[in-house]
């Protein structure tokens, strides 16, 4: 879900290029390892897992404005290394549909790859003590939080989003001060207020405009993000639970002592 899929033009092309270089290096190292080991037999499976991610995204989940990404599940099935390649392939193919920018494929891959890596590693760790459902759900939730944090951080750094947030916060703070200090102060700063006020009121576009069900603004955004984490973690947990009942070997859980009821 963390793949809000940053579009072309949002982030400077230099960042995009940097993302490609890092991903290129990681993929080069992974493929070198694949060629030397018997991981080559997992190449078709990597393609299958990538296809699964794309198909998983198209499954409707009712009124939710989010969809499954199955990045952590892919890394659990194919392993974090091949899972990373599958994520690159998915991002690249989706970029052809405008679902994420072509220049941002590298950065999107790093963000979702981090989610898959953290999630799959945590799953390995947690599944020794918890049931597959719980371990997969918790691991996925943490993975998604990591990738979301990375994405927000990246957008903040590259688009000057922090400045906007800071600016907004200071503006709000300023207004509160005004109301406390009285009418005279308000007149003195009239020019400054008009400048900012004109910008917001004239154009009328703000994060406040974002609406979901009965909520609006940041509340709506936070609810959508929480719903995304919930959907992804529950979805992955339930799929892993299903595997554990039918084919525990898929997630490498055949020897796990703790099982779901």
């Amino acid at each position: 879900m963390s793949h809000i899929h940053i579009s072309d033009g949002v982030i400077s092309a230099f960042w995009g290029l940097g993302g490609y270089l890092i991903v290129g290096l990681i993929i080069f190292l992974i493929l070198r390892k694949v060629e030397k080991t018997d991981l080559k037999k997992k190449i078709p499976m990597t393609g299958v897992v990538a296809a699964l991610m794309i198909v998983g995204m198209s499954v409707p989940l009712g009124p939710l404005p989010v969809h499954l990404s199955l990045a952590v599940l892919s890394a659990i099935i194919a392993g974090p290394a091949l899972g990373f390649i599958a994520i690159f392939v998915v991002n690249f193919l989706l970029a052809f549909f405008g679902h994420g920018g072509m220049t941002i494929v590298g950065l999107n891959t790093i963000i979702i790859g981090a989610e898959a890596f953290v999630g799959s590693m945590l799953f390995r760790l947690l599944s020794k003590k918890l049931t597959p459902f719980k371990s997969a759900s918790i691991a996925t939730a943490i993975g998604v939080i990591v990738s979301m944090t990375m994405m927000i951080g990246l957008i903040g750094i590259t688009t000057g989003g922090y400045e906007v947030f800071l600016h907004k916060f200071l503006d709000h703070h300023h207004e509160v001060e005004h109301s406390n200090e009285g009418v005279h102060q308000k007149h003195e700063d009239g020019h400054l207020q008009q400048q900012h006020g004109g910008e917001y009121n004239e154009e009328g576009h703000d994060v406040k405009d974002v609406k979901f069900l009965f909520f609006s603004g940041w509340t709506a955004i936070v609810i959508i993000l929480l719903l995304g984490i919930f959907t992804e973690s529950m979805g992955t947990g339930l799929i892993v639970k299903f595997f554990n009942k039918i084919r525990p070997d898929i997630t490498g859980e055949s020897n796990t002592a703790v099982t779901d009821k």
Binding site: S7, D8, V10, V164, H205, V207, D209
Partner: peptide, 29 residues
């Protein structure tokens, strides 16, 4: 998807926000 980023940029200027949407749609086309 670009709308979210455009809304952030629109707080700087309306044109900035519109450019983000145009770039995303243009690149997709």
């Amino acid at each position: 998807f670009s709308l979210v980023f455009a809304l952030i940029m629109m707080q700087q200027s309306f044109e900035h926000g519109l450019i983000v949407i145009f770039k995303a749609v243009g690149a997709a086309l």
